[in-house]
Write a protein that binds this DNA or RNA. Structure first.
Length: 244
DNA sequence: AATGATACCAACCGCTTTGTA
DNA sequence: TTACAAAGCGGTTGGTATCAT
C-alpha cells in the first residue's frame, strides 16, 4: 500500500501529520531513521526518537514499529505447525495473554500471534461450538494424542539421570513439585554446567528432530513439560507400576 | 472478467503496569 | 508516598491480497 493511496482514504487521513505527529504506514526512510536511532542509542526512551532521529512519530508509534517489525531478531515467514501447536496449547492455558505466549515463541511478536489466532482459530472455536459432534470428535482425538504423548514422556523419563535431577529438584524444594519456571531456570542456567545437555535430552527424550535447531528443541521440550508438573512428578511413582 | 468473501497484517487506541524523581 | 512519564499490553480498525463464485 502506498502512502499516496493511503492519503486519499476518506475519514482518517493516513500518512499526514496530526497534532504534530505523523500517523499511518511507515516509509522506508522512516524505518531507516529508526533503525539508525536504535543502533546508536539502543532500545528505550522512545519519546526521544522524534527529537534525536528527526522522525515525526511519537514514541509509542516508534516502539511499536521497532518491536513488531524492525527488530533484527524477528522471525519472518509463516507460523510453523510446531509454533501453531504451541500457540493453541498456550492459549488454552493462558487465554489472550499474547505477550506471555509470545515469550515461548522466540522471534514472534505478540501482535503476530494475536493476528494469527484471530484469523485461524477464533472462527474455528466459534464454529466448533455450533457443531458439538465435530467438537467432541476433535476433543477425543486430542485426548488420545495427549495420552500418547504422556506415555512417551513416561518412557523418556525412565532415563535414570533425568529422574535423579527431578528428584533433586523435589528435594531442594522440600518435596514440593518444581515449577515450570524452576525447571526452565535449571535448563537455561544449570547449577552444574555440564548438565545442560543432559537436561535437554531428559526433557526431550531422544526424539529430536534432525533439522530443528537447539533452540527449537529446547522450547519444544520446555513446552512438553506441560502445565501440570505435578503429573510429571507422579510419573516417578507410576513408572514401576506401568512398565515394570 | 467482475465481484464478494475471507485471510492477513500493520498500525492505532485506550487502559494498565512499571519505573523514577 | 505520590505523581508523572514511559513502557507494555490487548482489543480493534481498516487496507491489501487472494480465493471462490
Amino acid at each position: 500500500m502506498t502512502l499516496g493511496v493511503m492519503d486519499q482514504h476518506m475519514g482518517m487521513e493516513w500518512g499526514v501529520i496530526q497534532e504534530g505527529w505523523r500517523k499511518g504506514p511507515w516509509t522506508a526512510e522512516e524505518d531507516r531513521l529508526l533503525i539508525e536511532y536504535v543502533k546508536l542509542n539502543g532500545e528505550g526512551r522512545w519519546n526521544n526518537v522524534a527529537r534525536l532521529a528527526g522522525l515525526k512519530r511519537n514514541g509509542k508509534s516508534c516502539r511499536l514499529r521497532w518491536v513488531n517489525y524492525l527488530r533484527p531478531d524477528l522471525k519472518r515467514g509463516q507460523i510453523t505447525p510446531h509454533e501453531e501447536s504451541i500457540i493453541l496449547e498456550l492459549h488454552a492455558r493462558w487465554g489472550n495473554r499474547w505477550s506471555t505466549i509470545a515469550r515461548s515463541l522466540p522471534g514472534r511478536t505478540d501482535n503476530e500471534i494475536k493476528n494469527y489466532w484471530r484469523t485461524h482459530f477464533k472462527k474455528k472455536v466459534k464454529s466448533s461450538s455450533e457443531n458439538p459432534e465435530k467438537s467432541r470428535a476433535r476433543l477425543l482425538r486430542r485426548q488420545q494424542f495427549q495420552q500418547q504423548q504422556q506415555q512417551l514422556h513416561q518412557l523418556h523419563l525412565q532415563d535414570q539421570i533425568g529422574l535423579k535431577k527431578i528428584l533433586s529438584l523435589l528435594d531442594e524444594s522440600d518435596n514440593k513439585v518444581p515449577t515450570f519456571t524452576q525447571l526452565r531456570q535449571e535448563i537455561m542456567y544449570p547449577s552444574a554446567p555440564d548438565e545442560q545437555g543432559l537436561l535437554y535430552s531428559m526433557i526431550n527424550g531422544y526424539a529430536t528432530v534432525p533439522e530443528a535447531s537447539n533452540e527449537d528443541i529446547l522450547w519444544d521440550g520446555l513446552w512438553n513439560l506441560d502445565d501440570n508438573i505435578t503429573e510429571r512428578a507422579n510419573y516417578q511413582h507410576n513408572l514401576a507400576t506401568t512398565f515394570y
